[in-house]
């Protein structure tokens, strides 16, 4: 990555500030909040897939787990601070166990996809079947297909009566997304992040250099799940009711599509892809002429065919070609022939 972390911080603050100011003028904060939540969910998969090379078909499982953890804990505690923390820790712990099983078992990518998908399905089926009164955690009934309604939503830490909702909830979510984005940037600039990218590029080489690939992939997988869990908890506070459809295959597939459309291997891409496509889905939901899954599918196909790298890398590339500074000390014509060689060869 170019630039420095403090540069990143300044950019994040400026862009966040600008968007918080401008976006509510165009879209209601209620809708924006869910776009932010999905943006964070997209970022969680963008991190482990785009930078760690781990294609997880079950990111929705961690999202749902975070949401359910929050709701169950909130009903039991009656205050939102501890449930928020648990909603991050529980999915992370679950992912660490699942990841350790997969990575220490040296499963290849295909089986990793299958297992994460199946885990999502198992959770979906399980939560769906918990409608009976015997499925209780503390005071919280799991509710099966009826879902969990009526839990304590976000409050100012320490005072359960002071709810954070409406516009102020939007600001909280926006700031949290900015903070998570900054933490992801810091992670990617750290040795841990650079090594993760190395592992994405070539696992064998990294292990031949002495890195324990299994442990590092497990750790990254857990970090991704923690972010998805936080997004899940924010979703729970926004929706105020949770249903098992959080764990559905459609949800998992959507996250993958967000990442592809937005641009893998970038931080911004998955966030924009998620927010953009979710907003499109919202708009399409207001009409009944075309089914919106059809449109989502069409967008995916078009992107894979014509813009396989996604929006952000394409725009960044265009920007570089038009306005980019030529690097000093490296003559351009020296590199050009190599490009041409590659094309012709």
């Amino acid at each position: 990555m170019q630039g420095s972390l403090s540069n990143d911080a300044i950019k994040i603050i400026l862009i966040t500030g600008f968007l918080i100011w401008v976006m509510p003028l165009m879209i209601s904060t209620y809708t924006l909040t869910i776009l932010i939540v999905y943006g964070m969910l997209g970022l969680s998969l963008g991190l482990i897939w785009g930078f760690g090379g781990i294609l997880c078909f079950g990111q929705a499982a961690f999202f749902g787990l975070g949401a359910y953890t929050y709701a169950i804990a909130a009903i039991n505690v009656g205050e939102s601070t501890a449930p928020m923390i648990l909603a991050v820790l529980v999915p992370a712990g679950f992912a660490a166990l699942l990841g350790a099983m997969m990575f220490y078992g040296r499963l290849n990518d295909v089986y990793l996809g299958v297992i994460t998908l199946v885990v999502t399905l198992i959770l979906f089926k399980f939560i769906n079947s918990t409608a009976g009164p015997q499925y209780v955690i503390g005071n919280a009934r799991l509710g099966g297909f009826n879902g969990i309604p009526g839990f304590q939503t976000l409050n100012i830490p320490g005072s359960p009566e002071a709810y954070i909702w409406g516009d102020s909830y939007f600001y909280v979510c926006a700031v949290l997304l900015a903070v998570v984005f900054f933490l992801v940037s810091a992670l990617l600039r750290s040795s841990f992040g650079r090594i993760a990218v190395g592992i994405r590029e070539n696992e064998t080489r990294m292990s031949l250099m002495g890195y324990d690939v299994r442990a590092r992939k497990t750790a990254l997988f857990a970090v991704g799940a923690a972010i998805a869990g936080l997004a899940g908890a924010l979703f729970a506070n926004w929706a105020e009711i949770l249903t098992p459809s959080l764990f559905s295959l459609g949800q998992s597939a959507e996250i993958i599509i967000w990442c592809i459309v937005g641009g893998l291997g970038t931080r911004m891409g998955p966030v924009l892809g998620a927010a953009g496509l979710a907003y499109l889905k919202f708009l399409l939901g207001q009409q009944s002429a075309v089914d919106n899954t059809l449109i989502t599918g069409l967008i995916l196909v078009l992107f894979v065919l014509f813009l396989p790298k996604g929006v952000v890398p394409a725009v960044a590339g265009l920007w570089k070609v038009s306005f980019g500074r030529r690097p000093l000390g490296r003559t351009h014509h020296q590199r050009r022939p190599r490009n041409r060689e590659r094309v012709s060869g």
């Binding site: 650079r194 190395g198 070539n202 064998t204 250099m209 002495g210």
Partner: peptide, 18 residues
Amino acid sequence: NVMDSLSVFENIWLAARR
């Protein structure tokens, strides 16, 4: 067996970082 989409510097740095 190298990291193709990373720079020469990054490749060697990752080995040194261990």
